[in-house]
Design a protein around this nucleic acid. Structure first.
Lengths: 341, 341
DNA sequence: CTGTTAGCGCCTTCAG
DNA sequence: CTGAAGGCGCTAACAG
């Protein structure tokens, strides 16, 4: 494999000159520039990225880490879409992505720190979103450029998030407008910021419409269809009434649908259902499920762009910046009691 | 950030000695070893991976590339699962993964070549699977260690694949055993090896059971639910009869279900349906859809393991090796005409 | 067992 | 506009 020296020799110049034409320096005669280019082509020369990284002490690669136990995380294409988004802007700006999938949050934290301490990456995109998050603290302490997908409740960090509060508020309002007044909320793990935010939006909608804020209608469920089903069962057994379900995830919405079927409730007539994430198959369910569509691809592009900007100009990292990507309520039959189907 | 020299100074030894204890050399006195360790801790020293890569001329990172146009690729969690598998073994063997998602096959090829020419990666895992694939040719020509997820019809390369032929054969046989004798096959892009293989398995099953091999029952469809629906419509309009559908993807199976609903056909009584991939929601559809479950996670682990082995011992790359991961037919109601529901 | 000496391939002052 | 020299941080013979 040809090195810069080989090219220099062939072009009868010094390595520094070759280095300069690679860098696109303009204080170089057109003639030698062409000579060098010819030599590079002839030798099929490609600069060694590692050597360059060492000399420049940056790698032009971004680490993306996430912690997932099982395949549950991928039951909807959220992360894949985020990755596509990130990858897309990384490509255009000539950055690379180092991927690391861990099993636990601790593993993820360790991996993040390793990546940056080993100097394999210039920055990090992470997506944890626990209300109390040691990873974020560690990253700040280590002084790494990073952006969070989601948001931090404690620290002023760079982040890009979807508008969970607003989305839940709108979705709940939609149900209310459809005439549902006793809306149950199925939440995911309430240690997650995203859960808290969605609950918030749900509450806001109730308040806005002067509906009672019945805390007992909010239930936490295991992250599965069955979990959603069981949560509703618990509600029913406790004698809590509800005529609609605002689900913090499509899986829960599916659980609600199962619940309706189980007890012979008609959807949407007797039970309205709205989900979150708009999984690809939602439209195919019977009845088609209303769901909040999250623009995961955009989350990815924005996160990468933000990070790359900060890398360009570290000053920017000094200030908190939270980009919010609006989601979209996709209204289908499961929540439409009034209008046409 | 501390370097090896700092550690050396603090421990009052030479850098090489430090290097040796990092490498875990055993021809070093326990005493100095401990002294060095103490110095490393004190300085919070972590070896710079880039410098090490340059010196050793390998990076301990594997490139994973794939080409996807839209989110279609992620409508089922195949690639995410593959990534999880790859990542899992990479972690244990202290390798990293460089991820690149391209829009087109050409872009992917360019990216692969770039990664290896720039020496960013030691090897590649790719997942193209066109019958005629320029990427594979290029990789061979470039003499890169790589393994293919899927299989090559032309070149003897290292690959790990799921048993598409066998799986389609078994799934089709299952339909036949359930009393369906006029089975239509909805195929994806027939430029892909995977499509060809599944068609093959389908044909084998027909032959085995002495059923006529009606070529007109095989239709190619756009990769979507609608595509599957339309494909069947075309069949119907051409007057081709069928009492079951073997779908090369769950999306097509869903299209078949839509078709059944549209024409008032009962599933499974009047139309049997089997899909491919066992997407998470298949079991929730009404009726639940029979589908071939592919062990994507295992494909990922096997691919990574194979590649890492080859990297250890380049001799192994000389011989073709094709690992096949068996899939599993998940039988649900949509294909069960005989037994209990 | 340990230190010295050269690189790995490229970039970057510093001169001229 | 171009070359020489040194360095990025680590590893790997080669001597002792």
């Amino acid at each position: 494999m040809a090195t810069i020296k080989d090219v220099a020799k062939l072009a009868a110049v010094s390595p520094s000159t070759v280095s300069r034409v690679i860098a696109g320096s303009n204080r170089i005669s057109l003639e030698t520039k062409m000579r060098v280019h010819r030599a590079m082509e002839q030798l099929n020369y490609v600069p060694n990225a590692i050597a360059r990284s060492l000399a420049r002490s940056h790698t032009r690669t971004i680490g993306f880490t996430l912690a997932r136990q099982a395949d549950q995380a991928f039951s909807n294409p959220f992360f894949p879409e985020v990755m596509r988004g990130m990858s897309s802007v990384a490509q255009t700006k000539d950055y690379n992505i180092l991927l690391s999938i861990s099993r636990t949050a601790e593993e993820e934290k360790a991996k993040c720190l390793q990546l940056i301490r080993e100097r394999r990456v210039d920055g990090l995109i992470v997506s944890t979103s626990r209300a109390k998050d040691p990873l974020i603290d560690a990253l700040i302490k280590e002084d790494v450029p990073f952006v969070l997908i989601g948001r931090s409740m404690e620290k002023p960090v760079l982040s890009v998030n979807n508008d969970n509060v607003q989305a839940a508020r709108l979705a709940t309002s939609h149900l209310i407008q459809q005439g549902y007044h006793k809306i149950a909320f199925i939440s995911g793990d309430t240690n997650l910021v995203v859960s808290l935010d969605r609950i918030d939006g749900y509450k806001q909608a109730l308040i806005e419409h002067n509906l009672p804020l019945a805390a007992e209608r909010i239930v936490e469920a295991d992250f599965s269809i069955e979990g959603g089903f069981q949560a509703l069962n618990r509600l029913k057994q406790s004698g809590v009434e509800f005529d609609a379900v605002m689900a913090a995830d499509d899986l829960f919405a599916l659980g609600a649908l199962k619940f309706a079927e189980h007890y012979g409730l008609k959807v949407p007539e007797e039970l309205g259902i709205v989900g979150f994430n708009d999984s690809p198959l939602m439209s195919f369910i019977d009845p088609p499920l209303t769901s909040v569509k999250i623009l995961a691809y955009e989350l990815g592009t924005e996160a990468m762009e933000l990070l790359l900007n900060v890398l360009d100009d570290p000053e920017k990292a000094r200030t908190k910046k939270e980009i919010v990507i609006a989601s979209e309520l996709i209204i289908r039959k499961s929540s439409q009691r009034c209008e046409e189907e």
